[in-house]
Design a protein around this nucleic acid. Sequence first.
RNA 1: CGGGACGUGGCGCAGCCUGGUAGCGCACCUGCUUUGGGAGCAGGGGGCCGGCGGUUCGAAUCCGCCCGUCCCGACCA
Length: 574
Amino acid sequence: MRATELFMPTLREDPADAEAISHKLMVRGGFVRQFASGIYIMLPLGWRVMQRILGIIREEMTGIGANELSMPTLHTADVWQATGRYDAIGDEMFRLDDRGGRKMVLAMTHEEVFAWLASRELRSYRDLPKIWYQIQLKFRDEPRPKGGILRVREFVMKDSYSFDMDEAGLDKSYEKHIGAYDRIFERCGIEYLRVESDSGFMGGAQAHEYMAPSPAGEDRVAICTKCGYAANVELARSVAAQPAAPAASGSAPREVATPDQRTIAEVSKFLGVEPWGLIKSLLYIADEKPLLVLVRGDHELHENKLARHLKAAVRPAHPEEVLEYVGAEVGFVGPVGVAERRVRIVADETLRPEGPAGPREYAAGANKPHTHLMGVVPGRDFQAEWADLREAQAGDGCPDCGEPLAVDVVIEVGNIFKLGTKYTKPLNATVLDESGQERLIIMGSYGIGPARIAAAAVEQHADERGIVWPKAIAPFDIHLVHVQPKDELQSDVAGKLYDALKAEGWDVLWDDREERPGVKFADAELIGCPIRVTVGKKAGTGVVEVEPRGEGGREEVAVDECVAAVRRLWEAAL
RNA sequence: CGGGACGUGGCGCAGCCUGGUAGCGCACCUGCUUUGGGAGCAGGGGGCCGGCGGUUCGAAUCCGCCCGUCCCGACCA
């Protein structure tokens, strides 16, 4: 394509409201424009990248026998009411009424509609297994869109759904998706991890997320480089790294005055006790009842783990509630004596007294103003229920092999869930088995965010000049910079090269604009096509330049050898 | 939802504190020159200063409310 025919609005400066590298570069490079908060326009370059990614996805989905179809994005509320999600999901769902007053929603995801279709069309075990997928818009009224294209309110998703007779069939469909997904992310040229994840409100047994490491990400994963354990920190298990607190002495807890010492850091310093010798006591509200949550002082509570343990939504208590329920202000809360106030106590496993090291003693808040207790022994001075509540930290031991874990910041680019009958049951999606028995279909659901793949690719492959696209998903394969379009000789060479390169099957962007050379070079580096061919002043002597976008130098080649030189660079490109 | 910031030609910003009817760079249009790293000169077009209300002789500027956008946290298949 000729640049003079292409809508390619590049910007010299970073947009003021962009923070993430991918956001800045995709706006500057003329790939996307923001329409409203969390709602983006895909410009021609951005849309080409999307199509490349979708092409790879389609090939790999076809490869596992999946069928593409297209579902509505405007749903009647009834299917969502049937599965209970109409009420379970709050403001994140866009809701509207039709002219007759019927409740409608914009699709956040499509389990309901796929299960509805399955319930009407799949009748026999002979119809299974099936994998259906679509590439379709999703709408989510995110409380806080951010990171440009990373967290938005309307976005394209590839979502597929598997339908099987039994768990064994589901396992196979799940494995097929793992294979396809591994190949998709590999082919797209991004670095990724497959990690264990929380099945969240999707429900279901097993779930993994595909994560692309990037500082622009919003999730954290714990990974073990030795044995391969990898999990989202919202469920990652780990072995606390820091040493245990002192062994319990026989004496009862004693009060110490700690004027104005509220935080772990303050109390630790004031009492001369390391953070891991403290108990962090956090008052939460679950089901409108108070709940004291305990973790060791050097640990962080992960609220999802708490919520999962309780099977209830939780929120931190307000300061007034803390005062009301435990009788002390925030900073002086502790576990001793709160059970008598009918406050339930849940404590992290690390504090459990039955460990190999036996009971330990800690310092904790005394539930009295400006006072802490020392020598508090879990199990003796207070009782609690035990659960894994703490967030895995870098340096913790791997739960499987004990090696230190690393924690990476990542962008979620895909996920896979074993759903079971969570959606087929309420929508009554059944088939008859060999014996004529009605059986619920076992379902799985599998998503990929193509725009997030693009953003992750930019995050992972960019330099100070612009984007360095992996070759499989670049908007064009070759950027043909025609330095002097008015020069007839150059035009002749550029035109011939354009045809020759296209004839080899490459997509070529021919920059035939009347622009200064500097502008063209800068745009080429910003847009980031894998290979640049420059037709300039030496074209008269039959010489042009070829250059890969990443590291690697520029070389001069004869016009006749240009295609071969490009092919060599193309093979070497990521 | 809690905290913070911002809103002035298409883009990036100054002006606001100390009220007097809007400016800079880039982009855009015309002409000439220039042409291998975001050109030069000359001329030109474009802004109800986010909205509403208030104070004032007079508001981009002061006050109030609202809207929008971004960032941190919470939240989030």
